[in-house]
Amino acid sequence: MEPFVKQVKEGQPALFTIASWMDQYEELTAGFTSRHGGVSEAPYSALNCGLHVLDKPEHVIRNRELLAEAVGQPFDAFTYAEQVHGNEVTIVSLQEKGIGRTSRESAIQAKDGFITKEKGIVLCAQFADCVPLFFYDPVQHVVGLSHAGWKGTVLNISMATISLMTHTFGSQPKDIRAAIGPSIGVCCYEVDDTVATRVYAVLEEMSAAPDEQLTVIRGKENGKYMLNLQELNRKLLVQAGIMSSHIEVTQLCTSCRSDDFFSHRKEGGSTGRMVAWIGLR
Rank of each mutant, 00 (worst) to 15 (best):
residue 43 P to H: 00
residue 60 V to D: 06
residue 219 G to T: 06
residue 92 V to A: 04
residue 13 P to G: 07
residue 77 A to H: 11
residue 194 T to H: 04
residue 184 I to E: 08
residue 116 T to G: 10
residue 9 K to I: 06
residue 128 A to N: 01
residue 266 K to M: 11
residue 57 P to H: 02
residue 182 P to G: 01
residue 175 D to F: 03
residue 89 V to S: 03
residue 91 I to P: 05
residue 22 M to G: 02
residue 194 T to A: 06
residue 256 C to S: 10
residue 26 E to D: 12
residue 255 S to Y: 08
residue 226 M to T: 12
residue 149 G to Y: 00
residue 259 D to A: 00
residue 186 V to A: 07
residue 173 P to K: 08
residue 209 A to E: 15
residue 108 I to Y: 03
residue 36 H to C: 12
residue 229 L to W: 00
residue 89 V to M: 05
residue 277 W to E: 13
residue 107 A to Y: 05
residue 211 D to W: 11
residue 70 A to M: 06
residue 208 A to P: 08
residue 58 E to D: 14
residue 251 Q to I: 03
residue 55 D to C: 05
residue 11 G to C: 10
residue 280 L to V: 09
residue 264 H to R: 15
residue 224 K to G: 04
residue 267 E to G: 01
residue 114 F to I: 03
residue 23 D to R: 11
residue 204 E to D: 15
residue 231 E to F: 06
residue 277 W to M: 15
residue 59 H to N: 14
residue 100 G to T: 04
residue 142 V to Y: 07
residue 91 I to D: 06
residue 120 G to H: 08
residue 230 Q to D: 11
residue 199 V to A: 03
residue 276 A to H: 10
residue 143 V to W: 12
residue 22 M to K: 03
residue 280 L to I: 14
residue 167 H to T: 12
residue 258 S to N: 12
residue 220 K to D: 13
residue 243 M to Y: 05
residue 267 E to Q: 14
residue 193 D to K: 08
residue 261 F to R: 00
residue 125 A to N: 09
residue 135 F to T: 06
residue 94 L to A: 12
residue 50 G to L: 01
